[in-house]
C-alpha cells in the first residue's frame, strides 16, 4: 500500500506532520516499535531537510510485508558534494535555521544509520531524491 504526503516549505510550522502521520499508520499496521522509532527519526530528518534546504516536495511511503520504503523527492537546489553532505557535522544551514535548532549536520548521517539502505540521487539545480529502506 502507498501513502503520499506533501511537504510544504512555505508552511514550516507543519514540518514533521508527514512523519507523525506515517508513524500513526505504522502503529496501526502493528510494525515493531523499535523499527517505528528508526523510521520516524530518519523520515523526520529528511522531511526537515526538504523544508530547510529545498522548497518542499513529496514523500511516498510504500509498505509491504517485508519492507518499508520512504522516498523523499524535492526540486530544490540539489547537493553539490554528496560525500561532504553525508559527513557528520557538515552543514550549510542558514543562520535563521540554526536559530531554530537545526544545522548540527547530523541529519544525513542519522538517516544512514537508522535505515537499512539509503540511496540519494541529486543534481545541482534539479533536485534531490532520497530513498530509505527499512527491513521488517
Amino acid at each position: 500500500m502507498i501513502f503520499k504526503y506533501q511537504v510544504d516549505a512555505a508552511a514550516p510550522e507543519l514540518a514533521g506532520r508527514a512523519s507523525t502521520e506515517f508513524k500513526s499508520v505504522l502503529k496501526q499496521l502493528g510494525v515493531n516499535a523499535k523499527i517505528i522509532r528508526k523510521i520516524s527519526i530518519a523520515m523526520y530528518e529528511g522531511e526537515i531537510n526538504m523544508v530547510i534546504h529545498a522548497n518542499g516536495g513529496e514523500i511516498t511511503c510504500t509498505v509491504d510485508e517485508k519492507q518499508i520504503e520512504v522516498v523523499m523527492a524535492d526540486s530544490g537546489p540539489g547537493i553539490p558534494d554528496l560525500d561532504l553532505a553525508m559527513t557528520a557535522g557538515w552543514s550549510t544551514a542558514s543562520q535563521e535555521a540554526r536559530e531554530l535548532g537545526f544545522g548540527a549536520g547530523m541529519g544525513m548521517p542519522n538517516m544512514k544509520r537508522f535505515s537499512d539502505e539509503m540511496d540519494v540521487k541529486t543534481k545541482v539545480g534539479v533536485g534531490t531524491t532520497l530513498t530509505l529502506r527499512f527491513n521488517l
Binding site: R37, S40, N110
Partner: peptide, 8 residues
Amino acid sequence: LDQIENGV
C-alpha cells in the same frame, strides 16, 4: 512524546 519519538 510525539516529538521524542521523532527524535526532535
